[in-house]
Amino acid sequence: MGGTIAPDRILHEMADLWVSLGKQSEGDAGVLRACSMTLVVAVEESDDAQAIGETIAALMPEHPSRAIVIRFRAADRRMLAARVFAQCWMPFGHRQQICCEQIEITAADASVPDLAAVVLPLTVPDLPVVLWCRSPRLFHLPAFPQMANIAQKVVLDSSAFGEPAGILKEMSDALTAAGRSLADLSWTRLTRWRELIAQIFENRVQLANLPDVSAVRVLCCSKSPPVEAFYMAAWLLDGLEKIGGHPQARFDSAVGVASGELNRVDLLARDGVTSIASISLVEGHAAEVRVGGLVNRAVLPRPTDYALMREELSIPGRDAVFERTLAVAARLAASEPHL
């Protein structure tokens, strides 16, 4: 490991890697190189390397990519180091091996301003670049916008990024300024919840009740509402405003299995008490939907990082629903008296 790295050398090492993989392969099947994007993953050095490696490996069959994992080390001395290896799998009964490249870069904080110049030549030409920033520290470093500029899409997880009002405003401002696609895994975690709610109102009878909704109540397992709660409330308010409603958002605490986890969502009638529709988490992995006297259950497993990233990587462009919700959530969080 040296103190600096040269992109040309890494590219050369990758070329050597493919030659050696080809030599190792048995028979005539050979090795198939697969790539549909560059996935840059920014993590803290203390982050669980094995878990991240497993997530990236799980993503590869569906989203084969050149993965560039950047590990940040809190150090003042400028330091950059890199190694190259491959993620391979054999999907066809060991007939043929499919491989993706992975580059691992270790960088000290002091070297962050140099990073963009190193990563840019390592991205695969003509294919999209996605930056998955798992490090709150990097997000707040002045050099972050430079890194983000490499990518067409930036994925964050705001649940780890501090208090909701601040991070929602920061993200909303960043989105407006940069004009690139932004994703937040805290929002992605709500997809199955939101889908269940949308499903209720596919029924015309239930749909006709929507104008009667006077308030949305979001219960979470935390003292103050987390980002997910604001997203959920903002999305519901935005939807209800589309049909001429002006409901209020209410946030409450609930006892649940995981801290900060969304526990229940109610759409309340004009009396502010009667629930027109509700979804609640039961037994930690299922959702109970109550509407119009009917009770239904659906599986609602807590999504893994793999499932969340898989969903985000399937959306290459901008997400208008998220962008609208983010703006409403930022306003909602700023005005919330809890905070």
Binding site: T191, R194, E195, I197, A198, F201, E202, R204, L207, A208, L210, W235, L236, G239, L240, K242, I243, E311, I315, D319, A320, V321
Partner: peptide, 12 residues
């Protein structure tokens, strides 16, 4: 009325 909660980008 159209269902205002639809999100075809993400929902089945």
């Amino acid at each position: 009325l159209e269902n205002p909660f639809q999100d075809p980008l993400r929902f089945e």
